[in-house]
Design a protein around this nucleic acid. Structure first.
Length: 198
DNA sequence: CGTTGGATCTTCT
DNA sequence: GAAGATCCAACGC
């Protein structure tokens, strides 16, 4: 499991790239599902117009982004989809990485059941709404940790976490493009902060 | 195959 | 009261 020092680094763009090829795992009620992360987007704090926390806005929803790195930030989009992000950097700095796509790995039958699908076709697991759906992530889990944040050795395992299973990703294997659905963000909409594993 | 619009509800103005 | 870090099925070509 990735430790909090991975998430609490200052460079959210680097973290978004580092997360490619890692495995995102959930365990809700003993139902374990996982997949390899193949698409991410970086959202960089108060200076990023595309971020919910742009300009230092703090609301009931966005206050989660100001927690320490290693916290899950999940929120409802279009009233239909839960989008899963991992908060990065130190407490007080609202950086986050949106997980946009995974390659399903474990618990395929559970994923199919959650998605009410018969079989896994092309694009299964690609898209932030679908990632949350097949992994069973609901927006109510926002604010829960994705790693051990306390020094306490008795700290319990999180329901959601990320593992490094040794896959090396060379820079040449990463495609970077502008982020999706953030046209309202002015010049920040053009930042190449969406990362895709080939 | 490209385009369109409906679903659906929290959050902020 | 309006908009949103989306998805998918239904249409039209």
């Amino acid at each position: 499991m990735l430790q909090k020092d991975f998430y609490q680094r200052a460079d959210v763009v680097q973290i978004a790239k580092d997360l490619l090829g890692k495995y995102l795992i959930t365990n809700f009620n003993g139902q374990i599902t996982s997949g390899m992360i193949v698409e991410t987007e970086a959202y960089a704090g108060v200076n990023d117009k595309a971020s919910h926390a742009w300009g230092g806005r703090v609301t009931e929803r966005t206050k989660i982004m100001y927690q320490q790195g290693g916290t899950a930030y999940v929120y409802l989009c279009y009233g239909v989809h839960s989008l899963f992000n991992i908060v990065t950097n130190q407490a007080g700095i609202p950086d986050a990485v949106l997980i946009r796509g995974i390659l399903p790995f474990e618990g395929l039958d559970i994923m199919l059941h959650r998605k009410k699908a018969q079989k896994i076709g092309a694009g299964f697991g690609i898209g932030p709404g679908k990632v949350s759906q097949i992994l069973g992530i609901h927006f109510s889990v926002t604010g829960t940790p994705v790693t051990i944040l306390d020094a306490d050795e008795a700290a319990k395992m999180p329901d959601i976490w990320v593992e490094d299973r040794g896959k090396e990703i060379p820079d040449s294997g990463i495609i970077h493009t502008p982020r999706i659905g953030v046209d309202y963000a002015g010049e920040d909409a053009a930042l190449p902060w969406r990362f895709i594993l080939k």
